[in-house]
Design a protein around this nucleic acid. Structure first.
Lengths: 338, 338
DNA sequence: CTGAAAGCGCTTACAG
DNA sequence: CTGAAAGCGCTTACAG
């Protein structure tokens, strides 16, 4: 298998199939794309020829000829957070059913990497572009807007979308969640979320938390406001610090995994949830149901966001009308942790 | 924004840039691919022209001309299992550093869907193909082998790889894990894993479990051998049934998430781990460390599998030699759950 | 029902 | 340093 020595294995082309079947390339192309327009006998010969050489059509060439790539590009901030993975699953399901392929990129929450990936993805002349959030660099936004491809921004629906947006009101969700905690009577409610810089959703959630405090007539305690990365370990570290730091009696986390890390730390060290400290998350991932007593969380269907994004792209070509947002809504699911 | 009414937005082509800059397309192409071969003044004019129209090169056209797509296709059985997501992260990291794009597909553990995706992916003339496991349909294997592109099979390294394989000995890992449990003195050791049909890794793991029992001179109890899907809920359901069914005193799960679901169920219902029932998983995901007392698991670096797969593809073109496997090894990490 | 020609947007030798 | 021609593998009108 000295395959790598021979850089150009000659893969079968339409021409090879045509020659083998004794017809022209056009006819083979038709047998592939409009079988009904080819006589049964010819079709049989062509099919046999294709089988014989294991012909696989070159989709890049087809795409160039048809001006349509059957590729959709999706950009997520991280694959470490299951909400984005769920969204990708929903998207992939819809696209696969339509014979489209998914190009995936991980921006690491970095707007510049997002911009670079947007440019690169647009180079594939995708049939759709799925972004996370509504905050992008000016050039990324300009490229996406000017590309002519359907663009779907996911999760955050604040502001004017480039084209379509599918998500829910992150600020309202954080506000509702925090209000629930305050209604329970907790008095030192902390908030732990992603860094807000360049992240509209993180900023919106934190705003929701702050608004809830304000509405309850409570002061913001700087020590109770933390930024952290997305990991279970981070949740553990955060709760250790917040409890030591002079006592949060409740913590609102911006994600279930972080919250679960904190929750498990409590189980491990004997801190009682919610008696010593209440904990809640965001996303209502399966772990929220399974933690002992359950984790209070915000439910919003991540898979559905992906599905709707996929559908918006699939029928985006027949659709018309200006930019618009779809709000999938959310629900505060109260469980034992608060 | 009646964008959708106008199917063909005219995106800037090389020709448009060339006209704007007052040069030929070749020169613009050179400015892009070999800037040093273009005079500084010309380059400036070209750069300005590109800026002006937000030019984004058509990568499909480039790929066709260069016979190189800068696309790598990866197929995973599911995105619900974090080990595959981790692998994809590792792969994506390496590829992004080389300006390559990731096409991702989710086979749902279905060999026919895998075959379909292999064919479709090969249609993109990818620079590499990353598969899961070494068991594929004959046609999928034939297509991959005959495609001339570097193929990396991941996780399982049993059998002869199509080209490269990166993973570890799944059977040996399950054997070692089960042996550890038996050494601890547990006598009714259950095994819960994915259906083995069409899944070489699942079969290998189950074989390892059976071999460990055999080596210990213990009989296989059919009631203690279960198949289940990959989810935390499934782990919960499994442990409920196994404990009821007349008492496993230890359970080896084929994944950490399933094991964690079972573990959490124990916490919730007061079953003591490991006193009432010992539990262990596979993958050493972060949750394994965070569960109270810790979850015994098999550690194998999923991200590293992705990285090595990516590197094999990146320098696959200069490399030579026959098919070969890379064994990344594994380690049984003993924690409180056993 | 079938085929010859032109074109999709690039790059690669080959000339100048 | 720059450009004209040919080609990458398809599809799309246009003829027959």
């Amino acid at each position: 298998m000295a395959r790598r020595d021979i850089p150009n294995i000659r893969r079968a082309r339409l021409q090879d199939v045509a020659t083998a079947a004794g017809v022209s390339v056009v006819t083979v192309s038709r047998a592939l794309n409009a079988p009904a327009t080819v006589s049964a006998r010819t079709r049989e010969r062509i099919d046999a020829a294709m089988q014989a050489v294991d012909y696989v059509p070159d989709l890049a060439a087809r795409g160039m000829a048809k001006q349509r790539s059957d590729i959709v590009a999706v950009l997520v901030p991280t694959l470490l957070d299951p909400i984005f993975v769920d969204m990708v699953r929903g998207l992939e399901g819809v696209l696969a059913a339509h014979g489209m392929h998914l190009l995936i990129g991980d921006t690491g929450y970095d707007p510049d990497r997002e911009e670079a990936f947007v440019a690169a993805a647009l180079g594939r002349r995708p049939d759709g572009l799925v972004l996370t959030g509504t905050q992008h660099t000016p050039r990324a936004r300009r490229l996406a807007a000017g590309s002519g491809v359907p663009v779907v921004e996911t999760w955050g629906i604040e502001g004017e979308p480039i084209d379509r947006a599918v998500g829910y009101d992150q600020r309202a969700a954080a506000l509702a969640l925090t209000r629930h905690v305050l209604d329970r009577g907790y008095e030192r409610v902390a908030y732990v979320g992603r860094p807000v810089s360049g992240n509209g959703r993180a900023a919106a959630k934190r705003d929701g938390y702050l608004a809830a405090l304000r509405a309850a007539g409570m002061a913001v305690v700087p020590e109770l406001l933390m930024e952290c990365v997305t990991s279970m370990e981070a949740g553990k570290d955060a709760i250790k610090r917040l409890v030591r730091r002079g006592g949060a009696d409740a913590i609102v986390f911006s994600g279930d995994r972080i919250a679960a890390g904190a929750f498990l730390h409590c189980l491990d060290t004997g801190l009682r949830v919610p008696d010593d400290v209440a904990v809640c998350g965001f996303g209502d991932h399966d772990i929220a149901r399974l933690l002992p007593g359950g984790l209070t969380s915000v439910r919003a269907d991540s898979v559905q966001i992906g599905r709707l994004a996929g559908e918006a792209i699939v029928d985006g070509r027949v659709d018309d009308g200006g930019p618009r947002s779809v709000d999938i809504g959310f629900e505060v699911v109260v469980r034992g942790s608060t």
